[in-house]
Structure formats: structure tokens, C-alpha cells
Design a protein around this nucleic acid. Structure first.
Length: 272
DNA sequence: ACTCGTGTTAGCTG
DNA sequence: TCAGCTAACACGAG
């Protein structure tokens, strides 16, 4: 599920509920989720510290950690968290109540599931868990944020034009390139292109400045709406992403194909 | 049984 | 070296 809006709900959950709690245990036994670390490395690096801040760039989160035993003092390693295709964050309170972020919106959740892939156990009895059915999520030390482009919600119109228009790639593939702009996933990309009335397979070198500016405005409005409503799946055209679906604006048939290696839906009339 | 997928990334090609 | 493309990863859902 997670695109930028879902990751933002997960980040806010961590910020509200998981900071300044002493870590007394770490389950880092899933070597695929904790790649490239081996079991025990995350435990050894984090035990005795606390999370003290949580940031987000695109779909990547990072938690700053404290010194060992000094839970208000910065100085520990940064912990990267990525939700992958199906990850969610669950934070369990000292009383055992579990809240979930990374899905549509924050809500109650089971305290333990068969899909718990990584967990921090706190001294107060609560925990922070990465729940991830498909195991494409990831938790690792020292995330390299410089490999990502600017966050999709923070990029300026000028930056956007410069990052988007270079080369000959299909515009949807470019929107999905996290090293150019961070945070746009498959559903957001379809929604942005539909709102801007741009064909997903249009080559970026064929776009005019007016197209880029419409894409920029669509990006900002789609992001704002998706964060407010709780997820990328709340977009207007997402409901029409199925066989027989019709454009919510003009009623024309929706087309389906693969662009940039991803399943893509577009309006046969307005995004020809 | 079989196909698909809201994400990333190694590896190949020109 | 780089832009662009494909396959692979893992595994549940339909």
C-alpha cells in the first residue's frame, strides 16, 4: 500500500508514540528485511538507546537515536525504515494497545501478527513493529538519503521542470524515478497524469513547459488530498482502474497497459 | 493452479 | 559513464 501519503501517516505515528522510549530488545532475525545486516547487528547497535526524532524523504523514513542510557542526547546511529509494497508500522503502548500507521489511516491493530518482520521492544513493555506480508520492506542502519531526489511535497516548480524534462524516457517512468523526485508511486503517478491530462507514455522531451506546470500543480494537489484522506488509493481515477472502468471526468473508456514496467491506466480520450 | 501487484535494484544494452 | 529497460526479489490475494 505505501506511497508517500501512507509513509507520512506511519512517520507521524512514530513521532507521536514511539520516541524517547528505551529500547531493551530488537528482533532483527529476518535477514531479508534487515538486509544487508546479519542477525544481532541491529540489536547490538540499538539496545539501550531511544528513538529521538523521525524524518521522511519520499517513501524512506529515518529515525535518529540517542546515546546509550542517555535517552535525550543525540549521538546514536540513524535507523532507515522503508515499507516496501506491503509494510505498515504498528506501535504498541505500555498498556498493550496497538495503533497502525502506513495503511489508509491510523487505527487499532493486533499487537502481534504472523507477519511481524522487525520489532523494537521498549522498557515500558510496548513495542514498534514493521508488519509486512511480502517482506519487501526494509530496516537498515545509515540510510543514504542523498540517493533520493527532493521530496515530492517540497520540490519547487523550477526544480520539477529541470528534473522531469531531461532525456527521452516515458513521463510516467520519470515520475516513478525516486532518484529524481522522491515519493511518487504507481497509483499517485496515474492520478497525477490523469489530473494533468498527460499521456503516461509521452516521452519527456515531447512535453511543453505548460505540460510540466500542469503536472506540478497536479502533483501538489494530489499529494495534499491523499495525505488528508489517508492514502494514495483515495484518488479520483483510482476507482476506475479496472476492466470496464470509465473516466470520472469525461466518461470515456479507461485504457490499460504497462508503462515503466508498471501497470498503468489512463483515459482513452483525454490522455491519448 | 495461475496471474497479478500501491517498490526497489542488480544487471544488461546501446 | 550513463540513460533506459527488464527481470528478479517474496508471498499473499483473487
Amino acid at each position: 500500500m505505501p506511497e508517500l501519503p501512507e509513509v507520512e501517516t506511519a512517520r507521524r505515528l512514530i513521532a507521536d508514540q514511539a520516541l524517547h522510549r528505551r529500547i531493551v530488545g530488537v528482533d532483527d532475525s529476518d535477514t531479508f528485511v534487515c538486509r544487508p545486516h546479519s542477525p544481532g547487528q541491529l540489536r547490538d547497535a540499538l539496545t539501550g538507546r531511544a528513538l529521538i526524532a523521525v524524518g521522511r524523504r519520499g517513501k524512506t523514513m529515518w529515525c535518529e537515536t540517542s546515546q546509550v542510557g542517555r535517552l535525550d542526547a543525540p549521538g546514536g546511529p540513524d535507523l532507515g525504515i522503508h515499507l516496501g509494497m506491503s509494510g505498515r508500522i504498528v506501535v504498541v503502548s505500555p498498556e498493550g494497545r496497538a495503533a497502525e500507521g502506513g495503511g489508509p489511516r491510523r487505527r487499532d491493530a493486533p499487537a502481534r501478527t504472523a507477519w511481524d518482520r522487525f520489532a523494537l521492544e521498549f522498557a515500558d513493555g510496548g513495542r514498534l513493529v514493521l508488519v509486512d506480508k511480502r517482506r519487501l520492506g526494509r530496516v537498515w542502519l545509515g540510510p543514504d538519503l542523498d540517493a533520493l531526489g527532493p521530496d515530492a511535497g517540497l520540490v519547487t516548480p523550477e526544480e520539477f521542470r529541470n528534473l522531469i524534462l531531461k532525456g527521452t524516457i516515458a513521463v510516467k517512468a520519470r515520475l516513478l524515478d525516486q532518484s529524481k523526485i522522491a515519493g511518487i508511486g504507481n497509483l499517485l503517478a496515474d492520478e497525477i497524469l490523469w489530473q494533468a491530462k498527460v499521456s503516461p507514455s509521452a516521452r519527456v522531451n515531447t512535453l511543453r513547459r505548460a505540460d510540466a506546470d500542469r503536472l506540478y500543480r497536479a502533483l501538489q494537489s494530489v499529494l495534499r488530498s491523499a495525505i488528508a484522506k489517508g492514502g494514495a488509493h483515495t484518488g479520483d481515477v483510482i476507482a476506475a482502474r479496472h476492466p470496464g472502468g470509465t473516466c470520472p471526468r469525461c466518461g470515456a473508456e479507461m485504457r490499460h497497459g504497462t508503462v515503466g514496467g508498471r501497470s498503468t491506466w489512463w483515459c482513452s480520450r483525454e490522455q491519448a
